[in-house]
Design a protein around this nucleic acid. Structure first.
Lengths: 252, 252
DNA sequence: CCAAATTTTGTGAATTTTTCACAATTAAAG
DNA sequence: CTTTAATTGTGAAAAATTCACAAAATTTGG
């Protein structure tokens, strides 16, 4: 009981990297903060976490890479993204092959994916690192020039390689969405890649947190009706939801 | 003055691993605790330290403690590898393009490379993550199936893509070396990749720490005379060194 | 099955650490 | 030599952490 909780905390911390005591309290409403504190103390003594003011952070997380620009971006809308990622993870079946993009939401998805036998293609460096830790996941990363801002790769040449791969499902995310302009992102090559994704996958699942709604980025890579499932958070506007469901797109 | 102090704090912290504010106060009696706090905050934002209750700890220190399969391997012969990496880093000129492999020594090399204008190709995920942090380094990662044990990619298909790239210099490392069997590694596809490297690069620099000498791995990818420069540590046997220099190979 | 012993947990006060706001000082620029 | 900006110091306010002890839960032994 105690040990179970502690292990759960450790796991959670490995996934999220860092948690405040308040966040932990939300996850474990049945015990007091003091108990959680004591658990953290124990985990610290085991060398698995580091207690910091306000909460704790995972040692594994620190070991990965230090203060890169990427982690900064990670902080925004974290909770929504994790929830979306959890929903998406549940949609992945064993013994299938799928594509995941390189965005931040995708990275959370990578964390949530269970260690099952699947073949995953990705153009995200951070996603790849995360998935490489799962023994049963067969992983292929798309090569190409690395974009420093989001640690994902894209290049026309890599497209050729991409053309020769097969997968059933693609789970991608967009930087912006409006009904008129569809799903868009900030780079031409990325848009091309995602367009190819749309062509090659039997089904296209889109992860979109509601903060992206109403925004427009330069390159549209999919329209509203191009997707099969939309995975979003609770703040998704009802009228928009209707627009999707009317086109037989599942919104969840 | 301010920056100097901050650097000094960072250095101290890297050495000692962890320091309380009181200890820091002893080291810097001329400034107030508040100033030290502000310095620590700055260092934390730079991602170099982690502030904990009572003081701060060095990120490097945390990173040392191993846990993962990959990180475990990293821990072995660390000092030699870092020295070799430092030597290799000095050989890289601005405005050139080069290939770096995906091994552990290569990862240390990535850390040591200054933030200069170069184009780097690599098949190492960890190497890529490290290099992605340098603003001026143009980075391309070779795609392919990811090998979980060493976080590097290799696949016949990626080879095709590789063929279309150009670089002047390749800095690679081997898992094993004997004069008879040359430089060898543990995987067929990796050997193929490194062979291609040998063909495409104008010059081939080999990083080899002395612990690899006398070992044999299944796949040879280069012979003694194939390389141009051998970068090794101080324990490299003198007789072997002669063998290389007699073939006009620089040993350093 | 019950009671004693042990472990785990919760609570509020005490302590410590950290933050905050503003003044004082120092360094830099014109 | 002013003026401006940056850095630093101070004490109070806020927050987080620890502490001590009682309550609750779990385990143990009869």
């Amino acid at each position: 009981m105690k040990r179970e909780r502690i292990e759960e905390i450790a796991e959670l911390l490995d996934k999220r990297g860092k948690l405040t005591l308040e966040q932990l309290d939300d996850y474990f409403p049945r015990v007091s903060q003091m108990t959680l504190r004591r658990d953290l103390l124990l985990l610290e003594q085991e060398g698995r976490i580091i207690r910091v003011r306000g909460g704790a952070m995972s040692v594994k997380e620190v070991q990965k890479v230090s203060g890169e620009p990427y982690t900064k971006k990670t902080a925004l809308h974290t909770d929504e993204k994790i929830k979306i990622a959890q929903k998406a993870a549940r949609l992945i079946d064993e013994n299938t092959s799928l594509f995941i993009d390189g965005g931040t939401t995708a990275m959370y998805l990578a964390k949530e994916i269970p260690d099952i036998n699947v073949h995953i293609f990705t153009n995200g460096l951070a996603v790849a690192i995360e998935l490489a830790q799962k023994k049963n996941v067969n992983l292929t990363i798309l090569g190409g020039q690395v974009m420093k801002d989001n640690l994902s790769t894209a290049s026309p040449v890599a497209q050729v390689y991409f053309e020769n791969t097969n997968f059933e499902l693609a789970i991608i995310s967009a930087s912006a969405f409006t009904p008129q302009n569809g799903f868009s992102c900030g780079s031409q090559v990325e848009a091309d890649l995602l367009k190819t994704t749309r062509r090659k996958a039997k089904a296209l699942y889109m992860m979109l947190d509601s903060s992206k709604i109403g925004k427009i980025m330069p390159y549209t890579f999919a329209r509203l009706e191009d997707i099969d499932v939309l995975i979003t958070d609770d703040n998704f506007p009802a009228d928009l939801k209707d627009m999707f469901t009317q086109k037989n797109i599942v919104v969840m």
